[in-house]
């Protein structure tokens, strides 16, 4: 692949998804484009680039999806789910006691493991959220991964990564060699295809937003834009969850990290003027 072709693909990906593809990620491009090339009956990377230059919209969409699809597993990194169970959920149960309404957005839902992990926690705490209206919205750029998320079917390998066996036998059934999440968990999550670069109008407001391991692929201006638009969807007492390698620090001051809760950011309280001091 020529440097000019790499630049062409990198610019296309940036424009369509915000993904910043540096030259050291050429291996990623080569490994992920192979299946897309086969699907479109193309011989290899050069043929793919030639078609992209000829404005093949379906191919451009598939290449973008292939490059932005990230692996996921149940209860990934554990801590963000401990924070949900022990910190955010108790706080929200108190703060929303009058309305009994809780909305959660998983902004990079991928194949569904993150929203279903939250749904399982809520099911385990069902006595606490009895009579509550809880909504979990999972969005992703890729229709392919969302189809998998909606189906709720996972391989043996996938259900063994992060999912405690007690929850596996409780909330999954075995279908041939695959494991299917039970309907009462599946029905707790609604999925929508969405590009984080596009408008968030129509999503409504949320109490908690999980946006993990996706900002790392964007440049700083894109990160700032996404975070500032997410802030508009969260009330003053809402929570934002980022990935372990991500932070709001140095990007925007609409959020500030919550001390003692790794990965959790909140809006700076009006009563804390020092929060805005650089």
């Amino acid at each position: 692949m020529t440097p000019a072709d790499f630049d062409f693909v990198a610019q296309m990906l940036k424009r369509r998804s915000g993904l910043v593809l540096s030259t050291d990620k050429l291996y990623l491009l080569e490994s992920r484009i192979g299946p897309v090339a086969r699907k479109h009956g193309l011989g290899g990377l050069d043929a793919v680039v030639a078609k992209l230059k000829a404005n093949d919209e379906a191919l451009a969409r598939d290449v973008t999806e292939a490059m932005t699809t990230n692996e996921s597993f149940f209860f990934r990194d554990k801590t963000p789910f401990d924070h949900f169970e022990k910190l955010m959920l108790p706080a929200m149960l108190k703060a929303r006691a009058a309305t009994k309404r809780l909305r959660i957005w998983c902004a990079a839902a991928s194949t569904g493991q993150e929203p279903y992990s939250l749904a399982m926690i809520l099911r385990e705490k069902s006595a606490l959220v009895k009579d509550w209206r809880v909504e979990i919205i999972g969005t992703d750029l890729s229709n392919d991964v969302l189809s998998r998320a909606k189906a709720g079917l996972y391989t043996q390998f996938e259900v063994q990564r992060g999912l405690p066996v007690q929850l596996m036998v409780k909330y999954f059934t075995k279908e041939r060699e695959q494991w299917k999440i039970k309907d009462d968990i599946r029905s707790m999550v609604q999925y929508r295809q969405m590009n984080l670069l596009d408008s968030y109008v129509g999503l409504g407001t949320f109490d908690i937003i999980y946006c993990r391991n996706v900002l790392i692929y964007f440049d700083e201006a894109t990160k700032r834009g996404i975070l500032e638009r997410m802030a508009q969807l969260l009330p003053e007492d809402g929570y934002l969850l980022l990935g372990a390698a991500e932070t709001v620090v140095g990007i925007t001051n609409v959020f500030t990290p919550l001390a003692g809760a790794q990965g959790v950011s909140v809006k700076p309280a009006k009563a804390q003027p020092k929060a805005n001091v650089a």
Partner: peptide, 18 residues
């Protein structure tokens, strides 16, 4: 890898199952 085996293991005191 059937659920019946996994359930038996948990009931017998297994902590995890691979």
């Amino acid at each position: 890898n059937d659920i019946s085996f996994i359930t038996q293991a948990i009931e017998a005191g297994a902590n995890e199952y691979i």
